[in-house]
């Protein structure tokens, strides 16, 4: 049986460290697949102008395209070159919620993420995505510092 692990990337160094950790882990497990995931922070409850709405579909495609070509595909390719099974997923949504959902949908046994990507004022009020994930995830979460 394949052991699946979801690893969350965000295009930053901490995300890279999470990926490195996941790769090391995967290389030690027989038949392991990494679900390399990039969640584009997005909320359906924001206020936008009509013009922004009109162009939203186009922007969404652009955002997915950028995340895929710049972060996810290179990571998946590198993993495959190292002999590790991997697939990429890019989605919009709340980072913690979406990572958890993707992990559940793919039947992953754990989630690996970097420590903190956002900081400052918002973090103090809402907590970081990582904190939220740790608090609410349905599978074990490994946080890489």
């Amino acid at each position: 049986m394949t052991v699946k692990i979801t690893v969350g990337l965000d295009g930053t160094d901490t995300g890279e460290r999470a990926l490195t950790f996941a790769r090391d882990l995967a290389s030690r497990i027989e038949n392991c697949e990494l679900i390399v995931t990039y969640v584009i922070e997005w909320s359906p409850f924001t206020f936008q102008t009509a013009e922004e709405n009109e162009k939203r579909h186009k922007r969404r495609d652009e955002e997915i395209n950028i995340a895929t070509t710049r972060v996810v595909t290179p990571a998946v390719e590198a993993l495959k070159d190292a002999g590790i099974k991997a697939q990429g997923v890019v989605q919009h949504g709340d980072v913690a919620e979406t990572l958890n959902r993707i992990a559940t949908e793919h039947g992953a046994s754990q989630i690996i993420v970097g420590r903190v990507s956002n900081d400052g004022f918002t973090k103090r009020i809402f907590g970081s995505s990582t904190q939220n994930l740790v608090m609410h995830a349905s599978v074990p979460v490994t946080v890489v510092g």
Partner: peptide
Amino acid sequence: PNDAGEVSHFQALAT
């Protein structure tokens, strides 16, 4: 959830 990132019903209503 797979359609996330498109204009939501809430956003269209708010606009």
